[in-house]
C-alpha cells in the first residue's frame, strides 16, 4: 500500500470504509428484521445510497492518492446505481401492492415496529 501513508488520506479513508460497511450491514439487518415487505424495501435502499456512496468515495481517494492524480472512475458505479435503483424500487413497490391487493391484504398504515 503505497501513497496512502499520509494520515490526511488514511484516516478519512478508514472512517469512510467503516461507515460504509456499518451502514450496509444495518440496511441488510433491516431486510431481515422489519415485518412487512414495503418496510424492508427502505432497509435495502440504505446500502445502495449512503453505504455504497461512502465506499466509492474511499475508493476514489485511495485511487487518486496512489496514481497522484484525480481518478474519478469509481464514481461511475454510484452514478449507475443511483440512476437505476428508482426503476427497480418503484416496480417492486407497485408489484407488492398489486399482489398484496390480490391477496386481499390492506394497504393502510400498519405498525411495523413496536
Amino acid at each position: 500500500m503505497t501513497g496512502i501513508e499520509s494520515p490526511w488520506i488514511a484516516v478519512p479513508v478508514a472512517l469512510l470504509l467503516v461507515a460504509g460497511g456499518l451502514l450496509t450491514l444495518v440496511g441488510a439487518l433491516g431486510l431481515v428484521r422489519l415485518r412487512n415487505f414495503q418496510a424492508r424495501m427502505h432497509g435495502a435502499s440504505m446500502g445502495s445510497t449512503l453505504g455504497l456512496g461512502c465506499l466509492v468515495v474511499a475508493c476514489v481517494i485511495v485511487g487518486s492518492a496512489m496514481a497522484h492524480r484525480l481518478a474519478l472512475h469509481a464514481l461511475l458505479v454510484t452514478v449507475f446505481v443511483v440512476i437505476t435503483s428508482p426503476a427497480t424500487a418503484t416496480l417492486l413497490m407497485r408489484a407488492s401492492l398489486y399482489r398484496g391487493r390480490a391477496r386481499s391484504a390492506s394497504a393502510d398504515p400498519e405498525v411495523i415496529e413496536r
Binding site: I4, V13, A14, G21
Partner: peptide
Amino acid sequence: MSMGNLVGYAAWFAGVCLGVAMLLAGWRM
C-alpha cells in the same frame, strides 16, 4: 501501526460487514 495498515484494517472490517450483509440478503432471498 502505520497508516497503510490502518486502511488495511478498515477495509478488512468493511469486507466483513459486507459479507454478513450479503448473507442476510441471501437469507431473505
